[in-house]
């Protein structure tokens, strides 16, 4: 049975179109122009129990909106979704006891108190049995190596330490589904790596379902077998990370190390020259042409070494995002202000 089932899920916002300048702002007091932003435009998705799925997409693609819909924080404009058999936006306590949402940009722990006090509050709110609570807390705290920080006010912790505390708080009630919205944002490489290791281990041991959004390709490469790419509110890809390259990149990178005295001229007849430092050259060649180009190069020149590679993933994704974010994207949504 699918843990998460989404059918034609939609969310649109009406956004006040603010004009530039004071005069226009004053005019806006009387006549307002609104525009509808379709943040999520009919998503279909099935996630099996125990899957670790990444949402990938540029800012404003609708990733966070989707997670908020699945958490029941906001209600959709259309479509259906169930998580663990519950409709999230009904906000049933039975459902709310079974999942957790962690947002890298927001904290839910009491700022001025040691995290352990917030943990106790979670115990009461989620009605966690005291023995279970102590066991889960100890396990998480040891895994994340934060025991010594438990009695320190949260405001005195580093960003990475705080995120570990947030994760602990979110997992105290042993949720079956976990939504992670950019959990490693702003963290240094070491802290990022630690969080990745923890998530990987925890997901493997507990077999929970995790949906993760991240901008860091490393997070995704380390954690998720399945990647769902969202752009402009629609799913444009659903598959393996490596498959993205096959689908979205129309070219390969050919690296040739020439033998002999000098570099051949006019390399651009084979493809776009990315780099040319004697005796090496890197060329961008259309995927369909690669066999022909390679045999031509080998036939026409003395070659010491040759390699054919896929372009780097980051590059492919940046390219894909650039293509999909032309035109008005639903960036920087804010509630209609007064």
């Amino acid at each position: 049975m699918s843990a998460i089932k989404i059918r034609n899920l939609q969310k649109s916002y009406r956004v006040y179109q603010k004009k530039e300048g004071l005069g226009a702002s004053l005019a806006g007091l009387f006549r307002r122009e609104y525009r509808t932003v379709d943040a999520v435009k009919g998503i279909d998705l099935d996630v099996e129990g125990g899957e670790f799925v990444a949402f990938l997409g540029p800012n404003g693609a609708g990733k966070t909106t989707t997670l908020k819909l699945l958490s029941g924080v906001i209600s959709p404009s259309g479509g259906e979704a169930t998580v663990l058999g519950h409709v999230p936006w009904r906000r049933e306590n039975d459902y709310r006891r079974r999942f957790a949402l962690v947002m890298g940009q927001k904290n839910q722990l009491w700022w001025d108190l040691p995290a352990q006090e917030s943990f106790k509050l979670h115990q009461k709110i989620y009605r966690i049995d005291p023995a279970d609570f102590a066991r889960t807390r100890d396990e998480l705290v040891d895994l994340l190596d934060i025991r010594r920080l438990l009695s320190q006010p949260v405001r005195e912790l580093s960003l990475g330490e705080r995120m570990k505390m947030e994760l602990t708080a979110a997992l105290l009630h042993s949720p079956e589904v976990l939504f992670l919205d950019e959990p490693t944002i702003g963290l240094d490489v070491v802290a990022q790596h630690n969080i990745q290791l923890f998530l990987k281990h925890y997901q493997k041991v507990r077999g929970i379902t995790i949906l993760l959004t991240s901008h860091y390709m490393k997070d995704i490469a380390a954690l998720c077998k399945r990647v769902v790419v969202i752009a402009r509110g629609e799913i444009v890809y659903d598959g393996s990370l490596a498959g993205i390259v096959d689908k979205f990149s129309g070219h390969k990178v050919l690296t040739v190390q020439f033998g002999g005295e000098r570099m051949p001229g006019n390399l651009s007849r084979y493809g776009e020259v990315l780099e040319e430092v004697a005796p090496k050259a890197r060329l961008r060649v259309d995927r369909g042409e690669i066999a022909k180009v390679l045999s031509a190069v080998l036939a026409e020149h003395a070659v010491d070494d040759v390699s054919v590679e896929d372009p780097p993933l980051e590059e492919v994704i940046a390219e894909m995002f650039a293509r999909s974010s032309d035109g008005p994207a639903a960036t920087d949504l804010q509630p209609v202000g007064m």
Binding site: G72, V73, N93, A100, L101, K106, I125, Y126, P335
Partner: peptide, 20 residues
């Protein structure tokens, strides 16, 4: 909480939101 989105967390908790 409304302005900053902090109300999100209150809505996740398995307890009456108005009480919380």
């Amino acid at each position: 909480m409304v302005r900053t989105g902090g109300l999100d967390f209150a809505l996740l908790k398995p307890i009456d939101t108005q009480f919380l």
